[in-house]
Every structure is written in C-alpha cells, then in structure tokens.
Amino acid sequence: MGNFEDRLFELFSHKSFEELTLEEKQEVLKVMTQQEYQENYQMVHEFKNVNDGISMAIPPLELKSEKKVLFLEQSIPIYKAAAAIVIGVLLSISVQFFITQNSKEIPIKQEVTKQSIPLSEENYPKGLVVNL
C-alpha cells in the first residue's frame, strides 16, 4: 500500500477513473470510492488549468546590482586567505625584531657612592644666604 499511496497522488494529476488500468482501479477502490477519486482528479485539473492560465511576464534579471555583496559576506579563494596569514606572521616577526634591535637599555651602575655633603657654615651656598 505504501508504494501505491505515492502513485495514487500521481494518478490524480494524470488519469481520470476511467483511464485507470484494472489493477489501478482495484487499488484505488481499496482506499476511496470512485466518486471521491473522480472529484480529486477534477479538482486537481481545475486548479492546474487556472494556474496555467495565469500569465506572468518574467522581469529582466539585473545581475550587476545583484552582484553587490557586503564586504564581510564576500568569499575569497583559499590561496588568498593563506597568503594573508603568511604576510601577517612575517610582519609581526619583523616588527618584533625591529623593536628588540632598537630598544635602549638603561645602564645600571653597580657602585654608587654617596655624593651628598652635609651642610655646614663653610660650604653653605652663598646664593641662599639672605642678608637682613
């Protein structure tokens, strides 16, 4: 029956009950009456006729405007993607190298002697002396 169900839906659009073979008629009558089959057949044909009678002009296809694709939706070939990755890696390596080459290290003195001199009357800066 499973297979005939598929065929039954096809038969509605191709054959009236009278046009069915004897085997087909027997199979149809197992699931519906002759009148029901014929009504389905007529209904499908009436719809098909109306559908076919609808005239519709095909508008021209404007491929130019349709080709506008958003930047993020664009697809690119794999080789371009691979090349972009390689270039990116090379650039980052060279930038890193440049930075390390030009970095200036701050010299650190190992021995730092105290250079501060305690203030006394003899070595007090004269500029700071105010004569009242």
Binding site: N51, I54, M56, I58, P59, L61, L63
Partner: peptide, 24 residues
C-alpha cells in the same frame, strides 16, 4: 547559467508564492 535557472523557475516560484499569499 544562472539566467537559465532564473527563466526556468521564476514563473513557477512566483505562482507558488502567489497562491501562498493569495496575491499573484
């Protein structure tokens, strides 16, 4: 090639959508 597909399916698709919406 795309134009062939367009001409093959445009009317069929428009009618299908027309029947669904009730407006051709």
């Amino acid at each position: 090639a795309f134009e062939v597909l367009y001409h093959k399916y445009f009317v069929m698709l428009a009618k299908y959508l027309g029947w669904l919406s009730g407006n051709m």
